[in-house]
């Protein structure tokens, strides 16, 4: 069964999926700028910082991610970073979501493989 409990109660939004995937790629040093860069580079989509933080907040509330304040740096105008880390539940939720999508599209012959 591809459905985990979390996804049944509240499926991940597309942006949340993208953010979780970016976190999975980036590892423990991920923070806002890198996450947005990663999504933009891989999907050609520009995400507004407001939407991203809204998504991260929701994920944190569901304990899919955790956060930790870093050191302020000059390049950030003296403001601190906030590191975001992917938690195991988050990894499960991401997997469940992806599985659901794969389950729906596998076997469809619409010529996507060329991409």
């Amino acid at each position: 069964m591809p459905w985990s409990e979390q996804t049944v109660s509240k499926p991940l939004s597309e942006l949340e999926v993208l953010a979780l995937a970016a976190l999975a790629r980036l590892g423990p040093d991920a923070y806002g700028v890198l996450i947005r860069q990663e999504i933009e580079d891989r999907t050609d989509r520009s995400i507004s910082i407001g939407s991203l933080y809204k998504a991260l907040h929701r994920l944190e509330k569901r304990q899919f991610v955790s956060s930790q304040l870093g050191e302020p740096t000059a390049v950030r105008g003296g403001r601190a970073k906030k590191y975001i880390r992917l938690e195991p539940q988050g990894r499960d939720a991401l997997e469940a979501s992806i599985r659901a999508v794969f389950g729906m599209v596998s076997g469809l012959d619409i010529g996507w493989d060329r991409g």
Binding site: Y31, G32, V33, R36, Q37, I49, G50, Y53, L69, P72, T73, V75, R76, G77, R79, A80, K81, K82
Partner: peptide
């Protein structure tokens, strides 16, 4: 902190 900081960093660095 993080919203403004991130935006400032990306603005300057990228």
């Amino acid at each position: 902190e993080m919203v403004l900081g991130d935006l400032a960093e990306e603005f300057r660095v990228v």
